[in-house]
Design a protein around this nucleic acid. Sequence first.
DNA 1: AGGTCGACCTGGCAGC
DNA 2: TGCTGCCAGGTCGACC
Length: 267
Amino acid sequence: MPELPEVETIVRDLKLVQEKTFSAIKVQDPFVLRQPASDFIHALKKQRIKKILRRGKAIVVELSSGKFLVIQVMMTGQLVINAHPDKHTRIIFSFSDGSSLLYNDQRRFGQLRVVKDLGEINYFNILGHEPFSKEFTPEYLYEVCQRSQRPIKNFLLDHTVVAGIGNIYACEILFRSGVSPKRPVSKIKKAETLIIHQQIKAVLDEAIKYRGSSMRNYRDGAGQKGKFNQLLSVYAKEGELCQQCHEPIVRMVQAGRSTFYCQRCQK
DNA sequence: AGGTCGACCTGGCAGC
DNA sequence: TGCTGCCAGGTCGACC
């Protein structure tokens, strides 16, 4: 899905629908719901949106009933305000003031549901620290690294370790840190975890400022693409020359997913 | 028990 | 043009 910066951008854009009240919900494709459509509609109708926040890569909409609408957009989900429905529109939310919000999802991996308690969704129970929380310290990162032999790339993708980092930003963070994606985390020195910790925050923060990266499907709440692509150094740049040493960027597969890196700059 | 892999879906693109 | 195979931002459960 959209990773942390993209979901954060969507959540910020959704401030526009805060305080609005759902008047109608049209389920075009119940496949994306994790409960019967009638339950979903019933739980939302006439509810006012109190607050919208992000946890990991999930969007949490707090309703006036005290329940939560949870949206995981996964790879291709979009939430777009006041747009025209198309063939990928799965849910149409209408508000009492005449405005609307569409949930579009090409691949239908996304999931929506209304719950009383976030603990009903296991994702929230196992999620690690948020990168921008005070709990996410260099000491924490170093300590969890000691307990594993996995390559650092796979480790950064593990949302039970740290929430919100996906394939694009894991690659970029490691490039900026000068650390090879293959390095077993237990072999990473304390000074290096300090740099990686710093780069996690720096890369994600910068990507949020640029409203995320749009490789293919990602769009913000207004239906616009993110602009961080132009600042990517390695992701999807196989064969292009490293901006630092001019060696070609290499692609390899780790845990079934593409990793892009510079063999000379990342040790 | 930690870690990896395939499945879940649809569609775009490269190569033949 | 049309087919095949590969690839894609995530997550979970099965399996080693």
